[in-house]
Design a protein around this nucleic acid. Structure first.
Length: 308
RNA sequence: CGCGGGGUAGAGCAGUUGGUAGCUCGUCGGGCUCAUAACCCGGAGGUCGUUGGUUCAAGUCCUUCCCCCGCAA
């Protein structure tokens, strides 16, 4: 099939790779190269890198809705359009181009967690199950009819980064099946139940701020959901300390929220949360690299100090 | 050359106005204890990232380059 693939970051890679392997006639549309990294060097999006390596034509547009974007899509004349973490909104004009419409791969069990950062938010909100959904794109944000979905359990200590990898692979699998069934005519579509719908916003740095007056489970969920980005943190004397990994304990609370109840290079670092202690396993001081808490404690005496 | 922080014993850090380096953990040896994430005594281990310079003297001041981290994007 002639497929226009619209995607940008790593999440889209397994899906793109699957399409390449299935020998569809592809053209990739992605975002322009952006300044990135320490020196602001112009960096191509991951999807572009893969496409070029595999000899797939690539087109980049600031806005696919623009006249040029629409013209380029029309010129390719796709039968199907596939989006996976594209990062741009499509117009009705865009959606009208492919004969079979547009399929979106979304990293949640729709209609829950519509929007920008479903993987992080699902973990932060303590979900135990999530998944991937393919849907027919329409103008609303992730509101189109559901085609297929597959669910998966979230591990109790799983991070957003780890889940991200699993869901991107699962996304490729569900997309493959979606296209196959579309081709052999066994695909069905189901309206989303608006009553069950929820929207999640984009996640930002501030969302990583830990509130130690919340339960230990909440703190742990935030740390997992914010890893690797934006990364959970707390302030020590006004300085942000990044918290990369934590572990739930059965220990009862020992003092005020955020208090470093135990801070010993041999025993580890235990901090008070609302209803018990959380062990901090990996952390990062300003200017330093990320390290396990016991090591960090060697040069940073924290006993009795308080994270806020 | 977007802004800023940093490179000191195996590891994590400290080193005041320039005067041949300290702490914690680890490590090696010894001791104490029913026992210990405990404690005591002793030892080994550092060309202070790199280049050049200032100085009687530089981890500490200036300079070249390399690497790490944060912010911003």
């Amino acid at each position: 099939m002639r497929i226009a693939f619209l995607g940008t970051p790593d999440f889209a890679l397994p899906s793109l790779e699957m399409l390449i392997g299935a020998e569809h006639e592809l053209c990739v549309f992605t975002q322009p190269d952006r300044p990135a990294g320490r020196h602001g060097e112009l960096t191509p999006p991951p999807v572009k890198v893969m496409a070029e390596q595999r000899g797939i034509p690539v087109r980049q547009f600031e806005k696919i809705r623009s006249a040029q974007g629409v013209a380029a899509l029309r010129a390719f004349a796709p039968e199907l359009m596939v989006t996976a973490a594209f990062g741009q909104l499509l117009s009705q004009e865009n959606l009208d181009i492919p004969t079979y419409g547009c399929v979106n791969v979304h990293a949640s069990l729709l209609p829950k967690y519509r929007g920008a950062a479903p993987i992080q938010w699902a973990i932060i909100e303590g979900e135990r199950v999530t998944g991937v959904t393919t849907m027919l794109t329409e103008l609303g944000l992730d509101t189109g009819d559901i085609l297929l979905f597959e669910q998966t359990e979230i591990g109790p200590d799983e991070t957003a980064g780890e889940l991200f990898k699993r869901l991107s692979a699962l996304g490729a699998k569900v997309l493959k099946e979606t296209i196959e069934r579309m081709q052999n005519g066994t695909l069905t579509r189901a309206k989303q139940d608006e009553a069950l719908a929820s929207k999640c916003r984009m996640i930002n740095k501030e969302d990583g701020r830990i509130d130690f007056s919340q339960s230990a489970q909440k703190v742990h969920d935030l740390v997992r959901g914010a890893n690797p980005w934006p990364c959970a943190y707390a302030l020590l004397d006004g300085e942000p300390i990044k918290i990369w990994k934590t572990r739930m304990t059965q220990e009862p609370p020992a003092g005020e929220p955020g208090l470093c109840a135990v801070a010993d290079p041999r025993r580890g670092l235990y901090v008070d949360a609302g209803d018990g202690l959380v062990e901090i396993l990996e952390m990062q001081f300003p200017g330093a690299r990320r390290m396990d808490a016991k090591t960090a404690l060697l040069g940073h005496p924290l006993a009795g100090r308080r994270l806020r």
